[in-house]
Design a protein around this nucleic acid. Sequence first.
DNA 1: CTAGTTGCAAATCATTTGCACTTGC
DNA 2: GCAAGTGCAAATGATTTGCAACTAG
Lengths: 141, 141
Amino acid sequence: MTKADIEQLIRDVGLKVTAPRVLVYEQLAKAEVHHMSAETIYTTLSGKGQDIGLATVYRVLNQFEEAGLISKHHFDGDHAIYELAHKEHHDHMVCTVCGAVQEFCDPLIEKQILAVASASQFKCEGHQFTLYGRCSRCRSS
Amino acid sequence: MTKADIEQLIRDVGLKVTAPRVLVYEQLAKAEVHHMSAETIYTTLSGKGQDIGLATVYRVLNQFEEAGLISKHHFDGDHAIYELAHKEHHDHMVCTVCGAVQEFCDPLIEKQILAVASASQFKCEGHQFTLYGRCSRCRSS
DNA sequence: CTAGTTGCAAATCATTTGCACTTGC
DNA sequence: GCAAGTGCAAATGATTTGCAACTAG
């Protein structure tokens, strides 16, 4: 995804194209770290010499979330984690040792969710499903 | 469950039996509201004229959680919700309108979790699974 | 008696907001 | 030019902690 693509995306959701917005989006788009906290995004950008404020990072993230560009998760009780919104739904496996986040999607589970909800007359509008444990790299430690 | 049972439970996990501890446990054991926040527990007890501090409620809840007597959830990003620890594992459906919490347990989903984890060489140690939507009472509103 | 508990107030921590200044269009 | 966006500092809200007074065993 080029910088021009990002700018267009921001324009498309009705926001002005500004340096902080492009920077935050680029950061989240970077392959290695799809899942980041506001603080991490801020310190990473700030560390690269970018003149950006933490409050702005939070504001931009909230605007992006409202616009549907990104999604927000609360894997632990503390800070929120953000990721670019994918088209396809997916859930997460979070490593309690190294903090790595892997995505997965299981059709059988998705199907069962509907069954469970309808059995309780519950109108399900969304769900949050996270597995906690040790990723392949941290299994032995 | 009698007051004596509660006192014994507290003693069993190695804590002194004190008024705040018994009060908090009793409150969580009350049938109607199995899921409560620290703040709610505090105001409820406090409103009944009990001399208890909010900080103590938090401390007691944390001690109970460490002792395995209760479990803690983060249904939204904000305040934590506590409930007595049941023997059987279960997940939750949270009503986004009235805040009601229903429990459910689906063996098929539990089974799939293991399958998904092992497919990714992930050593699953726990999970958090919450459905958000409208409960039967709030479906129409 | 004395280590564990408590209540209160002050301290944290993540996140939000007020405000004067700056910038996109 | 002006509304929208920004940085900073101060405000917030949930939770934690320091500390002197209190109580269970």
